[in-house]
Design a protein around this nucleic acid. Sequence first.
DNA 1: CAAATTCGTATCGTGCCGATACTAATGCGG
DNA 2: CCGCATTAGTATCGGCACGATACGAATTTG
Lengths: 198, 198
Amino acid sequence: MEERLDKNPLVLLELVERLGNLMRTELRKSGSDESLQPVHLQALIYISKANRYSNTPQALADYLGLTKGTVSQTLLLLDRRGLIERFEDDIDRRVVRLRLSSAGERLLAETQPSLAWQNATRNISPNRIRNATSALREALITLQEDNESATFGACQTCTWCQKLSQRIYRCGRMGDRLSGPETRKICRIYQAKVEEVA
Amino acid sequence: MEERLDKNPLVLLELVERLGNLMRTELRKSGSDESLQPVHLQALIYISKANRYSNTPQALADYLGLTKGTVSQTLLLLDRRGLIERFEDDIDRRVVRLRLSSAGERLLAETQPSLAWQNATRNISPNRIRNATSALREALITLQEDNESATFGACQTCTWCQKLSQRIYRCGRMGDRLSGPETRKICRIYQAKVEEVA
DNA sequence: CAAATTCGTATCGTGCCGATACTAATGCGG
DNA sequence: CCGCATTAGTATCGGCACGATACGAATTTG
């Protein structure tokens, strides 16, 4: 007796891959004016969204799935172009902290490929978007776990996140107090909450 | 008064991008044994799924968002490795047709990254997957249109597709009769049906 | 049958990327 | 307080993806 395989997940995978290709193409176009490769823009985007635990070369390497040596070269180029700043960590002096320079922020604001996406999703109801989001999030989390790769995510759905007051949060893992905006950034020590699904 | 932007689409975008990165990382790992780059595996996967109108270098270039020159080199490498076969079209002798060699099929079967995906989506109900699929498809279609890029898709949701009988279909654009399995392949002249959404 | 168009290839330069080897800082066990 | 292992990052080199450009060949147009 043959095991019947559900084909629907594969259709979804195909869509994700195709969208990934398109976004990459989009990045290539956006960057060609400044002769930046997709990976450069991805790095800039990541740096703009990484929280205090995640704005390092190693975290970026994990995020992109590249080696730290490769990422080091990418960052060198971005630094030479004046798009990012690199500075030592005060406590652990091996660590390099990354942030966008004002030129980098300007560049990112001009070339944001998310505009095309905003436009492409304009006719999809918020409800369908939420559903798709939760399904993809689940796939992502499982994929990261199976992969033993670092898990990235924002505090909203992280186990460690505690709400102290209206505006103040706290990361139970690192012990720091976090502001509201900070809880919406990407974190490398993200741990997904087990969520109840209807 | 400030225009309030819905942030949910951006969250979805972030997920798609992250999943794209992960799949790319997965491809990089899969290919490293054979010292194949992600783009090589992507090409093989595409060729394995392209229908009779779409198994050409130009179509692959459109799909990947690369120039035909670049893709030509990629195909040269794959040919030298014995993973694909290239042969002239009978009618238009400028056109090159592509297909996997048996070695290519074997390689693809061994390194299929879709297994990880199958696994990652095992706990998501078919219904949620269908919903996510339809939402992403809509985003993809709009994105492709806005982009003026070629549109890729399978016959199931294509305007041109006609069902002649239980097992025989027909492409109204090209006029050919298509078998059931053929209607599940990727086509470059795909035209999305306008679908009724609840 | 020219001229324009389309599909594909050839070639060259830039620089991504991994592999390897290295330095420097931290942590660990005596 | 001193080796030893570990971790964060950099330097260097080779292979080759990728775009730009130029080209050849087949098709189409008139």
